[in-house]
Structure formats: structure tokens, C-alpha cells
């Protein structure tokens, strides 16, 4: 078990109404490569702040202390799209804290792993000539969108309302994988099939408002995995959906994570839902880590009273009814 991300003493503070609010307090945990880890908590627990911190998406005004050490398998090596300035040789340096650690390995010699990402990406590997390989040192900071895919709660807010869904997905593939537009659209079509949209051909040219909430979330997932990320973060990704669609999306996430060998960080307020999907659960409260452990241990033998209270508050279909009497 190797850690994909080693989080050590991570604290995050926000400025609010002139004062500082501590959203995360000295969090240390490992995200193990290939695992499905759920972060559980109520409002104000810091679970979304943790997700944003890991993804590198915290606002610039946030004060961040501590470190996140990354251990990416160097497996991809694509030049950036030609329209963007080629700043990538320095990217590995930015925010990197684990570079040069004993476990850091050169990516050279591992570039052959390309074919593991997806058949489509493998076909494009001829485009890697041009020296993209050496900048993928493990220990380098991941690039959001390429190395980390993020699925938010509200797909209506995360999808562009005036762009067709195939273009939104193709754009990710083009930006991060160095594909040209026809290749990127081909990948988008393939991904829309993988997220099991009822009619992928018709959905290609649809705008987000023409799709249901569950269909929009499938498109958002396709965009999140379009660049073949190592880590997929789903932040309350099913909370706005009804129970049946929620179960379908959870099943889809489970399948995609398994097929692509992704690591999953599943952020949820629902301990029962998280327990059905994740191998490990981390319980957060008031910005602190209450406990972390294997799902079965947390659910059957929680060590902390707060975890027990969360489990007891779950109203399952087998819970004792609160209703004590029939109507008069």
C-alpha cells in the first residue's frame, strides 16, 4: 500500500467578516493509491475544504499550512496543446514538497505505461515526442483536471450552460492530453458511452439544460475523467439526486474507478451511502479528523462517540420508528 497523497498537519483558514475561520485543523492522513476513501462529516466539518485543498482548488485568500506530498506514477507524457504557453517544465516545481524524496522516481523508462490509461490515449502516444516525458517526476504537484478529476454537487453550476456537452468533455481531453479537436471529440463520444447516457449520440450535441439532473452528473463525470486522472474526487456528487439516480451514479463511479484504476475520494454527509462505496471512512467534525479506519471497523466498532452518534442518527429502512402512537 503506497500513499498517493500524504497529508501532514494540513490547516486551512478563511477570512470571514474580518475574522479568521479555521476550516481544517492539523489534518494528517494518507490517501492510499487505488483505494476508495470516503470523507464523512456534517456542515462545517471541513470535508469540502479538504477536497478542495487536495485538488489545489482553494481560493487564493485561504491560508494554508502543512503539506501534501504526492506520489504519482509517472505514466503519462503529453505535451500541452500548442495554443497554450509551454510553461510545463516548471510545473513540477510549483508547490512540490516531496520532489527529491527517496521514493521519487524518474518518469523516464515508465512512459510505456501510457496504454494503461485507455485505449484511445494509447493511440495518441506518438505525440509525446518533444521532451514531455522528463517533466513528469513523481513527487511533483498534480495538475487539477489532468491528474485529479473533480465532480461537484451541482452539475448545473459546473457545466457551461452555453456549450454542448461533447465540447465540454473534448475540451478537457484536448487541453490535457494534447489531442486535436477530432481526436478529442472521438474521446468525448467514447466517454459519453462509458458513463452510460441513455442515448450518447443524441447527448453529444445537447446543452446541459436539455438533460436531467442525473444525466448532467454523468456528463460532469465524463469531463472529470476525460484526461485519465489518477485521483477522482466526488464532493457530494449525488446529494442533489433522488435515491434511485443516486444509486445509479454511485454504481457508475464504482465501475469507472475500478476500470481505470483510479483512486477515489468520496465526500459525503451520508455515512450509509459512503459505507456502501468506500473501503475506508474518515470522519470529520469541526475541521478535525475524528477517526479513520476500514469501513467495517468504523461502522461496526466506532472508537469515537461522535461516530457512534452519526451512525445512530442514520434513519435506515430498518431503524426503529420515531412515531410512537397511531393517530387518535
Amino acid at each position: 500500500m503506497s500513499a498517493l497523497a500524504e497529508i501532514r498537519d494540513l490547516s486551512v483558514r478563511y477570512i470571514s467578516d474580518g475574522g479568521e475561520v479555521s476550516a481544517l485543523k492539523r489534518i494528517s492522513l494518507d490517501v492510499v493509491a487505488g483505494e476508495r476513501l470516503a470523507i464523512i462529516g456534517e456542515s462545517g466539518s471541513g470535508k469540502s475544504t479538504l477536497a478542495l485543498a487536495i485538488a489545489g482548488l482553494l481560493p487564493g485568500s485561504a491560508t494554508i499550512e502543512g503539506r501534501i506530498g504526492w506520489q504519482f506514477q509517472a505514466s503519462r507524457s503529453f505535451p500541452p496543446p500548442s495554443v497554450l504557453p509551454d510553461i510545463s517544465p516548471t510545473r513540477g516545481e510549483i508547490g512540490s514538497v516531496a520532489a527529491g524524496s527517496p521514493s521519487a522516481r524518474s518518469a523516464i523508462g515508465e512512459a510505456g505505461n501510457d496504454s494503461l490509461i485507455s485505449p484511445l490515449v494509447g493511440e495518441m502516444s506518438g505525440r509525446t515526442e518533444g521532451g514531455a516525458v522528463e517533466r513528469r517526476l513523481s513527487g511533483a504537484s498534480p495538475i487539477p483536471g489532468r491528474d485529479i478529476g473533480f465532480v461537484f454537487q451541482d452539475p448545473s453550476a459546473s457545466l457551461d450552460p452555453v456549450m454542448t456537452v461533447d465540447k465540454q468533455i473534448a475540451e478537457v481531453a484536448r487541453t490535457h492530453l494534447g489531442l486535436d479537436w477530432p481526436q478529442a471529440y472521438a474521446r468525448a463520444k467514447h466517454l459519453l458511452g462509458r458513463v452510460r447516457l441513455p442515448d450518447p449520440q443524441a447527448a453529444m450535441h445537447a446543452f446541459p439544460h436539455q438533460l436531467s439532473g442525473g444525466q448532467k452528473q454523468r456528463v460532469a463525470i465524463a469531463a472529470a475523467i476525460a484526461a485519465g486522472p489518477k485521483l477522482l474526487i466526488a464532493d457530494e456528487a449525488t446529494s442533489a439526486l433522488d435515491t434511485i439516480v443516486q444509486a445509479e451514479i454511485v454504481s457508475l463511479i464504482r465501475q469507472l474507478v475500478a476500470e481505470d484504476g483510479m483512486t477515489l475520494l468520496f465526500i459525503s454527509h451520508d455515512i450509509a451511502l459512503a459505507a456502501e462505496l468506500a473501503e475506508r471512512l474518515a470522519v470529520f467534525r469541526h475541521g478535525g479528523l475524528v477517526e479513520i479506519g476500514a469501513t467495517e471497523q468504523i461502522v461496526t466498532a466506532p472508537r469515537q462517540p461522535y461516530t457512534r452518534a452519526l451512525l445512530d442518527a442514520h434513519l435506515g429502512l430498518d431503524a426503529a420508528p420515531l412515531l410512537r402512537q397511531a393517530p387518535a
Binding site: T243, I244, Q246, A247, D270, I271, A272, L273, A275, E276, T295, E296, V299, T300, L311, H314, G316, L317, D318
Partner: peptide, 15 residues
């Protein structure tokens, strides 16, 4: 049946 089957439940893990 679909709604009941889709409801998350702890007792699949917690006897």
C-alpha cells in the same frame, strides 16, 4: 421496489 432497493443502508455492513 426500486426506491427501497436504492436506499443506502448500514445493515449490509452493520448486523
Amino acid at each position: 421496489k426500486a426506491l427501497v432497493a436504492a436506499a443506502p443502508r448500514l445493515n449490509r455492513i452493520r448486523p
